[in-house]
C-alpha cells in the first residue's frame, strides 16, 4: 500500500465521520463519558502513587547509636552503611545537633536543666536509593542494622509503608477493573457505531468490490474512522480531566494531573479500543454485505 493510498484511505475515514456527523458525535460523546470515568480513577490512582512514593518515611531510616563509640567506630559503621545497595547517602547527626533541633521545635526555656542533661543519642540518617524504597527493603535493612553491636535502635516506616503500598495496589487494581469495564463498553460503542456506518455505506463497499478492491482496502476507512473517533474522545476526556484536576488543585494543593507518558498511554489505549471495536464490527458486517 503506497503512502498516497494510505492518505486517501485515512481521508475517507475523516470523510466518513463528517458524512455521518450524528452517528460520529453520539459515539464520541459516549466514549468521552466512558473515558472520563476511567480517567478519574487513573488520576486518583496516579496521585495516590505520587503521594505514597514521595513520603519522607519512605526515603529514610534513622539509626540511633549506643553511647561511647570512638570516631574510628563511627567511621567503620558509616562505611558499612554505604556498602548496602539500598543506601544512597548517610548523614551523621550528633546528639548536640539533635538536641538543638529538638529544643528549637519545643520552644521551651531551660529544657536541658529540667530533663537533667541531653538524653538524645548520636544518630545516622540513612537516605535510601529511590529505586529501593519498597516496604520489604526498608524492613530488611532496618532488621539487619538493628543487629549491629554499635546500634541501639532503628526507626523506619517499614510497616506503615507496607500498608500504604497495599492500599496503593488496591487502588490500582480497582482502577484496572474499571479500566476493563470501560474498555469493553468503548469496544461495544465503537463496534455499534461503525456497524451502522458500514451498513449506511453499502454502496461504497459494493463499488469498491466491483472495481477489485481487496477486503483490507475496504476495511481501512472504517478502521481509521473508529480510531479517529476514539482519539477525539480520548483528547476531549483528557481536556476534561485536566480542567477538573486544576479545579480540585485550587482547593486541595498537591493534586497533580497525569504525566505526559500517562497521557500518551491513555490516548494509545483509547485508540486501541477504537481499533478493536471497529475491526470486530467491520469483519462482521462485510461478511453480510455481498457483491
Amino acid at each position: 500500500m503506497t503512502t498516497r493510498t494510505i492518505r486517501y484511505l485515512t481521508s475517507e475515514g475523516v470523510r466518513g465521520m463528517r458524512r455521518h456527523r450524528g452517528l460520529a458525535l453520539t459515539a464520541v460523546v459516549t466514549m468521552t463519558a466512558s473515558l472520563l470515568v476511567l480517567g478519574v480513577f487513573l488520576v486518583t490512582s496516579y496521585n495516590v502513587q505520587q503521594v505514597i512514593s514521595g513520603l519522607e518515611s519512605r526515603k529514610e531510616v534513622m539509626v540511633y547509636l549506643k553511647d561511647g563509640l570512638t570516631p574510628a567506630d563511627l567511621k567503620a559503621l558509616e562505611n558499612r552503611l554505604h556498602m548496602h545497595p539500598a543506601v544512597e547517602s548517610v548523614t551523621f547527626i550528633s546528639r548536640e545537633e539533635a538536641w538543638q533541633e529538638f529544643s528549637k521545635s519545643m520552644n521551651v526555656d531551660g529544657l536541658l536543666e529540667t530533663v537533667g542533661g541531653n538524653p538524645l543519642p548520636d544518630a545516622y540518617r540513612v537516605d535510601l536509593n529511590p529505586s529501593r524504597r519498597d516496604a520489604a527493603t526498608i524492613t530488611s535493612l532496618s532488621d539487619e542494622i538493628r543487629n549491629w553491636d554499635e546500634v541501639d535502635e532503628v526507626l523506619s516506616g517499614g510497616e506503615w509503608v507496607g500498608r500504604l503500598d497495599r492500599f496503593a495496589r488496591s487502588v490500582l487494581l480497582f482502577t484496572a477493573a474499571i479500566g476493563i469495564a470501560v474498555g469493553l463498553s468503548i469496544v461495544a460503542i465503537v463496534a455499534n457505531t461503525v456497524r451502522l456506518t458500514v451498513l449506511a455505506r453499502q454502496d461504497l463497499i459494493h463499488i469498491m468490490r466491483v472495481v477489485g478492491a481487496s477486503e483490507n482496502f475496504i476495511r481501512v476507512p472504517f478502521l481509521s474512522e473508529g480510531v479517529l473517533q476514539a482519539l477525539v474522545a480520548g483528547l476531549l476526556s483528557l481536556g476534561g480531566l485536566y480542567l477538573g484536576t486544576r479545579l480540585i488543585e485550587s482547593r486541595i494543593s498537591g493534586v497533580e494531573f497525569l504525566s505526559p507518558s500517562w497521557c500518551g498511554g491513555f490516548l494509545l489505549l483509547a485508540m486501541i479500543l477504537g481499533l478493536m471495536g471497529s475491526a470486530m464490527s467491520v469483519r462482521h458486517v462485510l461478511r453480510q454485505v455481498r457483491l
Binding site: T5, R19, D203
Partner: peptide, 18 residues
C-alpha cells in the same frame, strides 16, 4: 455515490490502487 462529486465518483477506481 451520492456523497461526493461526479469528478470524485469517476476518480474512485483510479484512486483505489495508488
Amino acid at each position: 455515490l451520492g456523497d461526493r462529486s461526479i469528478y470524485e465518483n469517476v476518480a474512485l477506481p483510479l484512486r483505489l490502487f495508488g
